[in-house]
């Protein structure tokens, strides 16, 4: 485009450019600028205050020699895998069962999705109380005569992650249900008639025909749940505060503790940069297939 034409274009749309200034400022300063600064700090020796020196990958070496960080990564992997798998299976089953012409459908839907409206803090505190071994389910069951009953997940470092997964599944499974149910409602009824005439058993229809059709909804719900799990901080703070010991430490909490309590900015930014790179590596293929894959087939 010629310069004169460009000037004319900008002048004609000047107000539109002005209107987008807040967004541009936020993208440049609040997103890209902060991200760049975080990455920069991860190569410095900053502790309580930011420093402008350059120490190479020293913070990263220290980070991956810190057992608390390694534990938090392992915990994150455990929680993410089981949370996503259980939410997917449970949410899918709930959607399919609700879709069987059941009565009081609205009641079931409401009951399965309401946890998603609650905050993570509330979710954590609620389950912390229910799983409390002194006065919660364990005590109740023992008093009922099951004297050997043990449910000490939140206070036992070997099992505390089960408690975290339980609480997060309770919070998130309804999301998968809601999105898949919407998808199931959009499926042509002729498809069901055709498979019935062919005598294909219902579970095979679901597994090999319906679920592949619902792929976009499945991807959407898993992406949303993944974002929530990467950001997970409040649930851990409320439910276990990372304990017992470091048994339920997660990366987001590790970073926050090092930023604001342990005054170790270099280490914290090295950890957040690691998270950033990990998230990019995971979402890049998903976004690529969602965007470019669709464009290729539908255009």
């Amino acid at each position: 485009m010629q310069t004169a034409q460009l000037t004319w274009h900008v002048r004609r749309n000047a107000v539109a450019y002005l209107a987008l200034l807040p967004m541009a400022a936020i993208v440049v300063f609040a997103y890209l600028g902060t991200m760049a600064w975080s990455i920069r700090l991860s190569f410095s020796s900053s502790r309580l205050l930011p420093r402008n020196d350059f120490v190479g990958f020293a913070q990263y070496t220290e980070l991956f020699g810190t057992s608390r960080w390694l534990t938090s990564l392992e915990n994150f992997a455990f929680i993410a895998v089981f949370f996503l798998a259980i939410c997917f299976v449970l949410g899918t089953l709930l959607a399919i069962f609700i879709d069987q012409n059941v009565r009081a459908e609205g009641l079931f839907r409401t009951a399965f999705l309401y946890p998603y409206a609650m905050s993570m803090v509330v979710t954590g505190l609620m389950w912390q109380w229910i799983l409390n071994p002194d006065l919660g389910i364990e005590r109740t069951m023992r008093d009922m005569g099951f004297s050997g009953f043990v449910l000490d997940w939140v206070v036992n470092s070997n099992t505390v992650l089960y408690a975290v997964v339980l609480a997060t599944v309770w919070h998130g499974a309804g999301l998968v249900m809601a999105l898949l149910l919407a998808g199931l409602r959009g499926i042509d009824t002729d498809l069901w008639k055709a498979t019935r005439i062919d005598g294909i058993p219902a579970w095979r229809v679901y597994a090999f025909i319906i679920l592949p059709i619902l792929r976009p909804m499945i991807v959407t719900s898993l992406v949303l749940l993944s974002i929530s799990i990467v950001k997970m901080y409040d649930l851990i703070v409320a439910m276990t505060n990372g304990g017992p010991g470091n048994a339920s430490e997660v990366p987001a909490k590790f970073i926050m503790d090092n930023l604001f309590e342990r005054a170790n900015i270099g280490l914290a930014t090295a950890a957040s940069t690691t998270m950033l790179v990990t998230v990019l590596l995971i979402i890049a293929p998903v976004l690529y297939s969602q965007y470019l894959g669709k464009k290729g087939s539908s255009a």
Binding site: Y31, T34, M35, V230, I255, M275, I283
Partner: peptide
């Protein structure tokens, strides 16, 4: 860029 930001953990932005 904005959308990509939605996927990032808050911890990357918070300190700056």
């Amino acid at each position: 860029c904005l959308l990509l930001g939605a996927f990032m953990p808050y911890q990357v932005f918070i300190y700056p």
